[in-house]
């Protein structure tokens, strides 16, 4: 998904920025023809908009609100909910937190190793969707963005949620609209209004029950991934053995 080329040009003009493709490409550090080609094709990725906004010192969130798809981006508080923040904590850090809470050796230190593992990580897009799901959000997102639900499942498995899908999901669940863009990696945590230690604080203040449940979910996901990897290897090896 991307914003339209005409909207992009209008935004550049409205913001008083250069409309030269090569100039813009140079500013965001891509090949000189890249932005020009994107404009010609009429599909400008959100990463280009954010890159240009950053290069000219414009708040990326404000820049994005110029485009119809993201017009309401800043209409809700930017910081994520605790559940959203915890959803981006890696399973290793979640388990470390369990160690701190259950083993004397670790409890004495009183805190887990910092900084936390960065995101995105395996299953982080799916974990975020789970954290904001109040019903059948996958179905609704697929319907509103006009894609098959199986395709959305595949995207979540591969951590490839698009910015439009993320904002649509946030819009449907009533949570921060900006957080979705942080989750998909379009915006940095700072730009998205996340506090420096938002994830750590959310993890520390999390009750035991939801923590155990979350770890269990993540372990189940890891087991599924491991099984998929083993099956893929077995399939590839058997077929190569049979045909070759």
């Amino acid at each position: 998904m991307a914003v339209s080329g005409s909207d992009f040009k209008q935004w550049l003009e409205a913001s008083g920025l250069s409309t030269s493709g090569s100039e813009l490409s140079r500013m965001i550090g891509v090949h000189r023809l890249t932005v020009g080609n994107q404009m010609r094709r009429g599909n400008v990725p959100e990463t280009t908009v954010v890159g240009i906004a950053r290069a000219y010192g414009i708040d990326p969130v404000t820049a994005m609100t110029y485009f119809p798809e993201y017009h309401d981006l800043d209409s809700r508080p930017r910081p994520p909910s605790s559940a959203e923040a915890v959803s981006q904590v890696h399973v290793a850090d979640l388990m470390a937190e369990i160690q701190v809470r259950t083993a004397k050796t670790y409890a004495r230190e009183g805190h887990i190793r910092e900084p936390l593992t960065g995101f995105p990580h395996t299953g982080s897009h799916r974990a975020w969707i789970d954290s904001i799901d109040k019903g059948d959000i996958r179905h609704d997102v697929a319907e509103q963005t006009g894609i098959a639900i199986t395709y959305l499942y595949a995207q979540l498995t591969e951590n490839k949620l698009t910015p439009v899908q993320a904002v649509t999901a946030a819009r449907l669940s009533g949570t921060s609209l900006v957080s979705g863009l942080v989750i998909v990696g379009l915006l940095s945590e700072d730009e998205g209004g996340w506090a420096n230690n938002a994830r750590l604080e959310a993890l520390k203040t999390m009750d035991n029950d939801p923590l155990m449940e979350l770890v269990q979910q993540r372990i189940t996901l890891l087991r599924r991934r491991l099984k998929q990897r083993k099956e893929a290897l077995e399939y590839a090896e058997k077929l190569a053995e049979a045909i070759g």
């Binding site: 890891l222 991934r225 491991l226 990897r229 083993k230 290897l233 590839a236 070759g244």
Partner: peptide, 16 residues
């Protein structure tokens, strides 16, 4: 792929 064990090199059955 068979003789060079490419599958095992490219598709490790380890945790991500």
């Amino acid at each position: 792929t068979r003789t060079h064990g490419v599958a095992r090199q490219k598709l490790p059955d380890k945790l991500p």
